[in-house]
Design a protein around this nucleic acid. Sequence first.
RNA 1: CCAUCCGUAGCGAAGCUGGAUAUCGCAACAGAUUCCGAUUCUGGAGGUCGGGGGUUCGAAUCCCUCCGGGUGGACCA
Length: 564
Amino acid sequence: MSKLVEQATSNLRILITQAIEKAIAAGQLPDKPVPDFAIEVPADRAHGDWAANTAMVSAKVFQAAPRKIAEVIASHLSLEDSYFQSCEIAGPGFLNFFLNGQFYVDVIKEVMAEGENYGHSNFGLGQKVMIEFVSANPTGPMHMGNARGGALGDCLASVMSAAGYDVWREFYVNDAGNQIEKFGNSLEARYLQLYLGEENVPFPEDGYQGEDIRDRAAEFAAVNGDKFVHVDSPIRQQALIDYALPRNIEKMKKDLQKYGITYDQWFLESTLHKNGELQETIEELKKRGYTYEKDGALWYKATAFGSDKDDVLVRQNGNPTYFAADIAYHRNKFVKRGFDLCIDIWGADHHGHVARMKGAMEALGLDSGKLDVILMQLVRLTQNGEIVRMSKRTGKAIQLGDLLEEVPVDSARFLFNMREANSQMEFDLDLAVKQDSQNPVYYVQYARARICSILKALAADGITPYPCTDDELRLLTAPAELELIRHISAYTSEIIEAAKDYDPARITRYVIALATLFHKFYDACRVKGDDPHLTNARLTLCMAVSTVICNVLHMFKISAPESM
RNA sequence: CCAUCCGUAGCGAAGCUGGAUAUCGCAACAGAUUCCGAUUCUGGAGGUCGGGGGUUCGAAUCCCUCCGGGUGGACCA
């Protein structure tokens, strides 16, 4: 938490506890331990700045009516030297506290002092956390789900980093196994078709139909000509794969970079096959007694960990399954690289895989509680109120590249972080390209641009901000000003909550609310005025707001233009 | 059939470790700029929190059940 808010909260907790102790000493409450109570920001501002439910949760222990208990506590409270000016009893027995002027003064000072670091905390204690996201199949282009996953994963990583975690971004490349064989088969067919005619070379039934396969085959042909038409199929396929796969991966890197995402590592599945870790993992499972042979395949006893059926690790044909490699991969994260926490972002269509993966961690003697999977629900694109399924240009399924051609990166990253992962969302193409306040990213950017504009306008009149004194900051007493400052004060704890919930959408909502409160302030309070001290205080407040908005936008890699 | 997510105003959402009068945006309606950017702000209207039952002093929130929608249930990944 912000040092300030944290300090104020824990102090309030102590004050309440002390009041209860005094009441017990005075014989007004029975000598019983006080249950845990919550200190929260009430939904309704009339209920104070912060509220404690102490009296209600302790009604049973003290065997008295909550309001009665609240009155006793209140009568023993001493709020001197705290950030609170008063306490009221309300409703069923809430203790409602009102912050005093010094709190608001100190919030502004804290923001100004910390600048671009405002909002950061050491909540995560430097724990090593890996966030693996997108991890799209390298056999083809990325789709809308990857677009959402990319924005979500990258922003979550930033949020957790701000909350004090040591974050690692990773892309797992499935460059081995069945789908690569299929990739090779498909490329081979397209390549041969170029020389032998489409009608003479059947395309594999389960092959990849996309244009991208034809394109790669054609590129390969342009470089190599018919050199590979008359060699053995395995040689031809390998040559095609060796040509196409690195280029596909390169393309994904480029697309994601355009989208603002860079990874710490692109982890190749094939390394697990080559360096023996996959085999090592399978042996480990065998040794622990969680495997058996049946029908010529090696099975893993998933049922020992709650699954309703077992899974194949090594197929009849001797090839390990994707699942086996995935187990080895996750073992690698924990055992070989020592991550404290691993977060995977998967499409919701993989939900059946979650319990199995966690079970497999347990089977290896690892703590499955340290593997968290975020399931991301589907995205539907809409335009003119209708669902868009296909790209207008290509007539095929919409790709990440198509999206970024139509929609600014700022918009895409922001809008994909409007909803939590766990809910299906619609991505409104019309809204995303709108350059007005209906588009929330513009609304937020505009607030910051407006602040820059105020600073410029006043500077033109010879008014420039200087370091504010406490007395000047104390002049900020209008409701719109106090609301705004209070919201600013919550930023650090919002980041912590977002990190705890793995929900960067929380921060998106936070910054929209901040922009709203700023616009209200702008409407209610003129910065430029007769009192130079008040003007300076308001200018300082503007700068504090600008700092927080910029911190959020930079964190999400969204631009914060000075004018628009 | 099983698993899983979702159901809150005309539309899109927040609130979900139980608490005060259920919050916000869009749309619709009525207003506000001699003045720092109107890409802004103010106001009223709009609700069986999918239905029913249960737990509780108290349920949008927890439990059960039903209804509706999405997704998944391979020696695919």
